[in-house]
Write a protein that binds this DNA or RNA. Structure first.
Lengths: 344, 344
DNA sequence: CTGAAAGCGCTTACAG
DNA sequence: CTGAAAGCGCTTACAG
């Protein structure tokens, strides 16, 4: 049990070849005869040998400008939100399928991102995806200098030398506003996810922009933290007033469900008779029979595929410049909204 | 941008010390004077030097019986289920906090586990946690021989030389049965999560055991796959019959919510008047105002802490023998069940 | 406390 | 195609 691990030298000895031959047998493009490869593979199987990926990574430091580890960093926030849990699951599957390993870092706030990235860089990750958070300009520059591509998912790259994949947040907000305006709503409220975060802000900007165009203004505004509980509390505040909103748009579905549950089951309101409700993301629970939440759907599969493609292309081609991809959301109409009078 | 990475030699040159001194400056227990350490640290800061964790891992192969990487493997199934998403989030936070990195592997079926572990072992992980899946005896032996501790979370170790942390599934099933029997239910159904998986089977065994003791037998039985959709479909099958169950116990909360939504909103049944419903896990959505699902709660925080503690203790102390820890669940009574007549 | 040197397990340019 | 050898960036026993 404390015996030394099996190395390529052990395999070489058993197969009667040099250690180099063992190494070549495990490199698909190496020049080696089929006969030798077969002998090596048999010996390897007999000994239970697997090449040491760490040692392989060390060698790459000699032969490439930058050391490669075969690992991709994944920095994740809000994994409790089903939208992100699903994204992590699907993104990690995609990256694994392409032959990279995932070095996961769970962070609970924006402030932890730079430290997480510093740690990941010690492991010589070949690239990194950051879910719903940004990195500092200093850190972006460090990654750029090290040739480590960075993809922001669900966030803007702004002026940073990094790639990004995200939904058109402002446009999504406009879709929600247009639909509520067409439905004849007058007192329209918004529930923000986080005032410091561009995702929520842009959704709100697009939303308010259309209200203003239609000659209305935002009737009420609350701030949550993207959780169900914060949605419920925002709902309680919105409907404890004398004059109540007749429509609510939330920066995420999870918060919308908080508003929906408290309205129906704690305040005995009828949705959509008493007010209309729209969420964002179109998580699976939006479509549950008892919810039927109207929502802005993100084309998740396409977005994740795009993020994976950009990441891999940039890892294989380090001097490609960063790319920004924005996807349009779609309004999915369900039963939580009063419909426009002249239904098409 | 294609310049070589900064190494300890660069720092040594700038600080005017040997490369060994740089290495010692970054090893907390190394013997080095404070003055030298300070000079090294200044030079390191100036150059933006960070020790290469991969190279450090290589060196450890020389000095320890087994190479250490500072990485822990995490093999995960069913991340879409909030119960597991929350577990991954909390477990990874705990392990990170103790100074280890997480090498994540997402698998979609039991069959992928051994291959995932083989890949992870190439990276010389110091230990591995497997969420809701098991490994083969052959693989368990390989890990044991390599001194890599394995923790099964939410599964039994059975005869394998691995540790495990899980809920008392059979006991949880008994709690559910007792409560339904006390409530005077007669036609009691069970919805399995997966017939091949011990978690669901044990919950069913404990459940049926108590029914039998009370002179009843299982009225109906359906099988899902732990998803909301499969719960909904199981519910449709259960209630499309002539004679309907008056109680349903599901192997997970997510499936229970599927039953609940279809019953109330597609079949116009009243829960708990028409039937009582009990889930398992006590996920946050069980407590949402419109759900109020009675459920068996797992003491998640304590279980995750225990898994982390066992893992770390075994990584630091490789000849410790595997440990098995079982935790008791608690019945959380909410509005989805008819209550016992003689309410205590 | 400090430095020179060996060695961790690979990959690959070099020579044959 | 094949083998001997250098080297990736560290850690640490050894000698001073």
């Amino acid at each position: 049990m404390d015996r030394k691990a099996i190395t390529s030298y052990d395999v070489a000895r058993l197969a009667g070849v040099s250690q180099s031959a063992v190494s070549r047998a495990f490199s698909p493009e190496a020049s080696i005869s089929e006969a030798t490869r077969a002998r090596v593979m048999n010996a390897a199987r007999e000994l239970g040998y697997q090449p040491n990926a760490i040692a392989r990574s060390m060698s790459s430091a000699r032969n490439e400008p930058q050391q490669k580890s075969g690992m991709v960093g994944l920095i994740v926030t809000r994994m409790q939100d089903p939208f992100f849990a699903n994204t992590v699951a699907e993104l990690s599957r995609n990256i694994q399928a392409k032959g990279w390993q995932i070095l996961l870092f769970t962070v609970e706030s924006q402030e932890e991102v730079d430290a997480a990235l510093t740690t990941l860089m010690r492991y010589k990750i070949d690239g990194v995806v950051i879910l719903s958070a940004i990195l500092s300009g200093r850190m972006a520059a460090a990654c750029h200098a090290s040739g480590i591509p960075v993809i922001l998912y669900n966030r803007s790259a702004a002026e940073l030398p990094v790639s990004s994949v995200q939904i058109e947040n402002r446009e999504g907000g406009r879709l929600a506003a247009d639909f509520l305006i067409e439905g004849g709503h007058e007192r329209i409220a918004f529930v923000a996810g986080d005032d410091a975060d561009s995702t929520s802000r842009l959704r709100e900007e697009g939303f308010v922009e259309r209200l203003v165009t239609a000659g209305k203004k935002l009737f009420l505004r609350e701030t949550g933290d993207y959780t169900f509980v914060s949605g419920r509390e925002a709902g309680l505040r919105l409907f404890s007033r004398q004059e109540r909103p007749d429509a609510v748009f939330c920066a995420s579905d999870v918060m919308s469900l908080g508003v929906l549950h408290t309205a129906r089951h704690e305040l005995n309101l009828d949705v959509p008779r008493d007010f209309s409700l729209i969420g964002f993301d179109d998580i699976p629970a939006a479509d549950w029979p008892g919810h039927q939440l109207t929502s802005i759907r993100q084309p998740v599969h396409r977005m994740i595929r795009e993020a994976t493609d950009i990441l891999i292309e940039m890892m294989e081609n380090p001097d490609r410049s960063p790319r920004t991809r924005r996807f349009s959301g779609t309004l999915i109409v369900r039963g939580s909204c009063r419909l426009p009078a002249k239904a098409v």
